[in-house]
Amino acid sequence: MKIKFSFLVLFLCTLFYTLSAQKVDTIRILSPSMKKEIKNVIILPQDYEKNKKQSYPVVYLLHGHGGRYDSWIKETQPRLPELATEWGMIFVCPDGSNSWYWDSPVDSSSRYETYISQELTDYIDKNYRSIASPKGRAITGYSMGGHGALWLAFRHPDLYGAAGSMSGGVDIRPFPHSWHMKDYLGSYEKNPEIWEQHTVINQLPYKAPTGQLALIIDCGSSDFFYEVNQRLHEKLLYYRIPHDYIIRPGSHTFSYWKNAIDYQLLYFNKYFKSL
């Protein structure tokens, strides 16, 4: 009896692992602009294969500096497969290297804006049952990824209907010697105009009509990016651009982002459902 029970437990555990593993894939996608393959984690809702006629909204999740394509699921929020099923969303976690998600003006081999907002989105829409319009597409990230999400959303309002940032480096100018940014922009001292052009806060007012892009910004009150997020919030208010702005106790940590993503997915779900 004990042997049969143990076998049953082992079988159920194996079955659960198999079903869970089917929802998460790591795929390589060719970037013609960079002439190399980029790794991406794709997370599908559990009912994706059953509901052949259903299309799903897609949330692009960008990692921070020093991270990679699997940082979201390994370090930030291991429950992403469950959340994909709970919210009925596809999650796409691309590798952004340390690029800050720019097309670098000084390094032609680093073109992550083109990759994510053209090559990757095209691939996802052609190979998955995504809602292939801004109404079904959101982007967010933490730290460098928060900068990247707003950078891409502000510059490509035809692609993203909603965007978020968690502890984002939304103004890079106070940090001219940090996080390898000068490798992609040149030094601030020699290239101040390039730095002015490649920071999120200077993209305001963005090209989309006021209110078209749904925005949520979150930053801990003890974060070293708190002041730049506060300035972004004030500039959004100045231009009367609607947005949710969340300040909570916390700093620049994975535990903060693990909590923050819950607020952002709730916000994105309300956006998707409202259309």
Rank of each mutant, 00 (worst) to 15 (best):
192 P>N: 12
209 P>M: 08
155 R>F: 02
135 K>L: 05
206 Y>C: 11
190 K>H: 14
210 T>W: 04
197 Q>K: 15
177 H>E: 09
160 Y>E: 04
176 P>E: 10
125 D>L: 08
246 I>T: 10
218 D>T: 13
218 D>A: 08
124 I>Q: 08
218 D>G: 12
213 L>G: 07
247 I>Y: 03
148 G>D: 06
231 R>M: 05
173 R>Q: 12
192 P>T: 06
223 D>L: 13
205 P>I: 01
221 S>T: 15
235 K>S: 02
204 L>A: 10
205 P>E: 11
222 S>N: 11
205 P>F: 00
188 Y>W: 10
213 L>A: 04
215 L>A: 07
159 L>N: 05
159 L>D: 01
122 D>M: 07
263 Y>H: 14
207 K>R: 13
133 S>V: 00
123 Y>L: 02
171 D>I: 03
187 S>Y: 07
212 Q>L: 01
175 F>D: 11
180 H>A: 14
231 R>V: 06
246 I>W: 03
191 N>S: 09
126 K>L: 10
249 P>A: 12
209 P>Q: 12
243 H>W: 10
180 H>E: 14
255 S>P: 00
180 H>R: 14
171 D>W: 07
190 K>L: 13
130 S>C: 09
200 V>C: 07
222 S>K: 15
171 D>C: 13
210 T>R: 12
223 D>V: 09
151 W>H: 08
253 T>H: 00
144 M>V: 01
139 I>L: 05
119 E>H: 10
250 G>N: 04
182 K>P: 08
241 I>R: 07
261 I>G: 05
219 C>H: 02
176 P>V: 06
212 Q>S: 14
128 Y>F: 14
232 L>M: 11
173 R>E: 09
138 A>Y: 00
163 A>N: 09
132 A>Q: 04
119 E>S: 08
138 A>N: 05
257 W>A: 10
187 S>E: 08
258 K>M: 08
148 G>F: 01
151 W>A: 04
185 L>H: 03
244 D>R: 15
168 G>P: 06
227 E>S: 13
256 Y>N: 09
227 E>D: 14
201 I>M: 03
211 G>N: 03
251 S>W: 06
214 A>C: 01
181 M>Q: 15
154 F>E: 01
133 S>W: 08
247 I>G: 03
238 Y>S: 11
247 I>E: 14
202 N>R: 14
233 H>C: 07
130 S>F: 06
257 W>S: 05
206 Y>P: 07
227 E>V: 15
250 G>P: 03
164 G>K: 02
163 A>L: 03
226 Y>R: 12
192 P>L: 05
245 Y>W: 14
210 T>F: 03
259 N>D: 15
177 H>V: 00
225 F>R: 06
204 L>Q: 11
